[in-house]
Computed example of a mutant assay.
Amino acid sequence: MTAPSTHLRHRLVLGLAISTLAVFAAIAGFLLRPLMIDDAGPVGSAPPSLSAVEVGFLQDMLGHHQQAVAMGKLIDRPGVDDAVRTLGRQIAVTQQFEMGTMSGWLRMQDEPLANPTPMNWMTRYGAVAEPHAAGQHGEATGAHEMPGMATPDELAALGTLPARAAEDQFLKLMQAHHYGGIAMAQDLTARSPNGLVAQLAAGMVSTQSKETALIGVMLNERGIHS
């Protein structure tokens, strides 16, 4: 690895960390806003009357985030490159924070945390299974797979592969995972552009777009072209 590329990567990691703090501040602002505006309701209140699309998005994004958090924790082990471990930790922290927000809103609306009809709300992937979610023999696994999800075997490999191979696997899986998450969030904002759920989704698009840009740089440094 050349010194310029290492310097670039460090700058990107620093910039991404600053962006993540900005997202945290924005979400905290959404939750603290009622303290400053009399008619906004109690602190941490959910958006009024969540639509079916918003409920489905929050439920499915909870499951999507759970896998990203798991991947971030699986790559956080001795011998793994510090930059990859830092990225994994940052993704896990960011998405756990968002999971707390989403699950809180669903509970306030007396909605279940798991979607009984996964992905029915999403028009972009609602009728076609995501190719990445195909079974071991290449067959589609269903019409309502969440885009970008890794398979159980791929997840298991993150904890057992040698460090360098695990790093490459993590970066490739997380890039695909983020592309899927971005598509879900963009679908939500296109169909329901106003309100707190849309603002949260827009923040996800911003953060995950920056993270995928960093992942692309890291993959290119490793000679892996996505």
Rank of each mutant, 00 (worst) to 15 (best):
A28E: 09
A92E: 06
S49C: 06
G15P: 00
P162C: 09
E54Y: 04
V84N: 02
L74A: 15
W105G: 06
A213S: 14
H137T: 14
M119I: 08
T101R: 02
H178E: 03
R124Q: 15
L32R: 06
M204Y: 04
T207M: 15
D38A: 14
I27Y: 08
G126F: 04
A92R: 01
P4I: 08
I215N: 00
L171Y: 01
F30H: 07
L14C: 10
P42Q: 13
L8G: 00
W121N: 01
L158E: 01
Q90I: 01
G148W: 11
A25H: 03
T212M: 12
T141C: 01
Q109M: 10
H144W: 06
Q208D: 05
G142Q: 03
M99R: 09
E130K: 03
Q199F: 12
P78V: 05
L113E: 11
S226W: 10
R33Q: 07
A68G: 03
V69Y: 00
A166N: 11
Q186P: 06
G44H: 05
G44A: 04
L16C: 07
H225Q: 13
A52Q: 11
G142M: 01
A133H: 10
Q175Y: 10
E154Q: 15
L155T: 09
T123S: 14
I37Q: 07
R77A: 08
M122D: 12
G159S: 13
G180M: 09
A129H: 07
A17T: 12
T160E: 09
E139A: 15
H10T: 14
E98P: 02
A46T: 01
M174N: 03
E154I: 13
T20K: 11
S19Y: 06
E154S: 10
R164Y: 06
M61S: 06
A3Y: 02
D82M: 09
T2L: 13
T2D: 12
I91N: 04
D153G: 12
L62M: 02
M108A: 14
S209G: 15
A92C: 10
L161K: 03
D76K: 02
N115A: 10
P48I: 09
A185Y: 01
A183T: 12
E154N: 12
G15D: 08
G72K: 00
P162I: 08
T212R: 10
H137R: 14
E145H: 13
A198V: 05
A185T: 06
F30Q: 05
F57N: 00
P131V: 10
H7N: 12
D110C: 07
R11F: 05
V69E: 04
P34I: 02
R124G: 14
L200W: 08
G88H: 01
A22K: 07
E54S: 02
R222M: 07
I18D: 11
H144S: 10
L14Q: 11
K210L: 13
A133W: 07
M149Q: 02
R85S: 11
L200Y: 12
G135R: 01
V80A: 04
W105D: 09
G104F: 01
G195F: 02
S226I: 15
A202P: 01
D60A: 04
L106R: 03
A143D: 14
H64A: 05
M184K: 08
P116A: 06
F24S: 00
E211H: 05
M36W: 15
V93H: 05
A22Y: 11
P131R: 11
G88V: 08
D168W: 02
E211S: 08
